[in-house]
């Protein structure tokens, strides 16, 4: 039985990074309070309505009837960063947008998570070469928890990414909330 309902651990990719994260997180001793908190946090990841371009449309499609984000309890799109838990960077981030994105991230209360959705957010994607204005990867600005490649990724791929994030949240401990070790 895996951590995620109806998915086994070995069905997921990139388990090595997760193991590494857990080890370097320091506190292996997980209390029951930890697991209760992680259960709550991982099942209620409210995203910020933040979409810059094409991937935003797929994010909307993921929230719509066919794929239904709501099943994971994350349909509560909050427009205010103060009430959001995860910022799904869906689309290109250009240099003019960077201060805004940073500010949005800073306005979110801890614990907060970042999903880089799509090629643009991961690496600049289609705008990697020959352009002067695009940030080559949103992880230059804010720490990213999960990368979802695709241009744009299918809604299922986004759901898969969210489940990966849930797995990551479940490995955390209250003693170092949301803190990323230096291995990335």
């Amino acid at each position: 039985m895996g951590l995620i309902k109806s998915m086994k651990d070995e069905d997921f990719g990139d388990n090595e990074s997760l193991e590494l994260l857990k080890k370097s997180g320091g506190n292996v001793f997980m209390t029951s309070i930890d697991s209760l908190l992680n259960w709550g946090r991982s099942n209620s990841v409210w995203p910020l309505t933040f979409a810059t371009s094409c991937c935003g449309i797929e994010m909307m499609a993921a929230g719509a009837s066919r794929h239904d984000f709501a099943r994971f309890g994350i349909e509560v799109y909050r427009a205010s960063p103060r009430q959001a838990d995860v910022i799904v960077v869906a689309g290109t981030i250009v240099h003019k947008m960077v201060p805004v994105l940073k500010r949005l991230y800073d306005q979110m209360p801890e614990p907060k998570y970042v999903i880089a959705m799509g090629a643009c957010a991961i690496s600049g994607g289609p705008f990697f070469y020959n352009t002067y204005s695009v940030v080559r990867g949103v992880d230059h600005v804010i720490p990213v928890d999960v990368y979802i490649p695709g241009c744009p990724p299918r809604p299922e791929a986004l759901l898969y990414g969210v489940m990966q994030l849930q797995r990551k949240i479940k490995g955390e401990s209250v003693t170092n909330p949301g803190e990323l070790p230096d291995i990335l």
């Binding site: 990719g13 990074s17 990867g137 990213v144 990368y147 299922e156 898969y160 990335l184």
Partner: peptide, 12 residues
């Protein structure tokens, strides 16, 4: 395959 989400960019 579409399930590509990872925690580490270099895995991509």
């Amino acid at each position: 395959e579409f399930e590509h989400a990872v925690f580490d960019r270099s895995k991509l």
